[in-house]
Design a protein around this nucleic acid. Sequence first.
DNA 1: GCGTTCAGTAAACAACTGTTTGCCGAAAAT
DNA 2: ATTTTCGGCAAACAGTTGTTTACTGAACGC
Lengths: 210, 210
Amino acid sequence: MTETPAPAPRSRQAQKQASRRALLDAALALLERQNLSGLGVREVTRAAGLSPAGFYRHFADLAELGVVLVQESLANLHEMVRAVFAGSGDPEQLIDRSVEVIDAHVAEHAAYIRFLARERHGGVKPVRDAVGAELRHFAEELAELLALRPELAGWSAGDRRMLAELYVDRMVTTALALVEADPAERAAIADTVRTQLRLINLGSRHWKAS
Amino acid sequence: MTETPAPAPRSRQAQKQASRRALLDAALALLERQNLSGLGVREVTRAAGLSPAGFYRHFADLAELGVVLVQESLANLHEMVRAVFAGSGDPEQLIDRSVEVIDAHVAEHAAYIRFLARERHGGVKPVRDAVGAELRHFAEELAELLALRPELAGWSAGDRRMLAELYVDRMVTTALALVEADPAERAAIADTVRTQLRLINLGSRHWKAS
DNA sequence: GCGTTCAGTAAACAACTGTTTGCCGAAAAT
DNA sequence: ATTTTCGGCAAACAGTTGTTTACTGAACGC
């Protein structure tokens, strides 16, 4: 008498996107314990509940799928950095907020972060290049935000870029360290990076002032 | 008439070590374009000129071979850092010498560096752990050397360790960037890292003095 | 209602994989 | 001189792999 739960009369594109998501999710899960260059098409389709041939309706390659995962991994980056810079301008608080955001993000999207760590220097060139391009882009964005800060007035674009790269790199390395550490170590890691960022900030305040 | 070049009446252990080296070298070469988790035993033995079964006379696993490669990759680290610290104590020159040494080392042992970059966060746990342990050890060594420097007198062990990690990390990241960059970019990368190290040094000079 | 589109399938392809087995032959040990 | 050791090999094992093929059937555009 109840309405049949229905075999879900999903529209075609909805169903297609569902399959695509299943492939991406299955791959991401498998990549927690494996490298992309060691992953197999059949392995992914098996985990996603598709037939092997079905894979090719969505991607030409596993590399292509990998590039999509890279974009998804870094999709929220812009919002995150802007949210950090939105609040109070005090460098101390800015540092604290940055580390908080990273810590939360790593906790919530561990699989994506691990994937990035694995493939940043991994064996699949298109994926490696995609990660590099996104991180370079991120450094640019940070450099622009740094240009707006009063305490860095008078810095050359090159020096701002240099500082931005230093910060980005510290953040990335920290995220990778956090994702591989067991929970007990995480607080100590966050503490260390806070101190390091403060030291860098201190250095930048005396830069060119010497 | 001439003495036959001889089928090389090598002693047994000499021959065994030659095969072992062939396996390691073949694997290292293959890993320039591939990840360890995507490498195959047969692939390695084929490139090394052995039969597949021959592999197991030397290693139980590809992971085992990987760990040996990690150790070889970082074997010269101690000599390198001590050589850098041996000369003049001026921080500026120390930075310049460090970057020079890294640059030369990367140029000469590109394959090993690439391997480390790939497997530092790669999918094979024993190898990943071996890299992590060696780098932690390296940070410890640097922290000890920093303790001897007059300008850091009065620093706590924790702070010295924090600074050492910051330096090590910057070095490692630079090495990985250099090995993937094309030759035209390398000078710019070296320049940037020199500036960043100077900024860190500046920060450490004002640390606790504020 | 009716032909078209197209995501998903099963089956087949040849080629590849890690690992074990028993054996060989030469170096080493006695 | 004879026995033992052992690095290397060929062969076989039971899988696995990526990719293409022709097909099905339901959602689509009209």
